[in-house]
Amino acid sequence: MALTKSFKELVQRRVADDPAFAENLLREGIDTMLGGDVETGKSILRDYINATVGFEKLATATDTPRKSLMRMFSPSGNPQARNLFGVLGYLQKQAGVQFHVAPKPH
Rank of each mutant, 00 (worst) to 15 (best):
T4F: 05
K5D: 15
K5V: 10
S6W: 02
S6V: 08
F7M: 05
F7S: 01
K8S: 03
V11E: 01
Q12K: 12
R13C: 12
A16T: 13
A16V: 09
D18N: 14
E23C: 08
L25T: 08
L25Y: 04
L25E: 07
L26C: 01
G29V: 04
G29K: 10
I30E: 07
D31K: 08
D31E: 15
D31N: 11
D31Q: 13
T32Q: 02
T32P: 08
M33Y: 00
V38I: 14
V38M: 04
E39T: 03
T40N: 03
T40E: 02
G41Q: 05
K42S: 04
S43R: 06
L45H: 08
Y48V: 08
I49F: 03
A51D: 07
A51K: 02
T52Q: 00
G54Y: 00
E56D: 15
E56W: 06
K57R: 09
L58H: 00
A59G: 13
A61C: 14
D63A: 07
P65M: 06
K67L: 09
K67A: 11
L69T: 01
F73T: 05
F73V: 02
F73R: 00
S74M: 05
P75R: 00
P75A: 12
S76H: 09
S76W: 01
G77L: 00
N78G: 13
F85P: 02
Y90N: 14
Y90V: 13
A95D: 07
A95G: 05
V101H: 00
V101P: 09
V101K: 05
A102F: 09
A102P: 08
P103Y: 01
P105M: 12
H106M: 07
H106T: 06
H106I: 12
H106E: 15
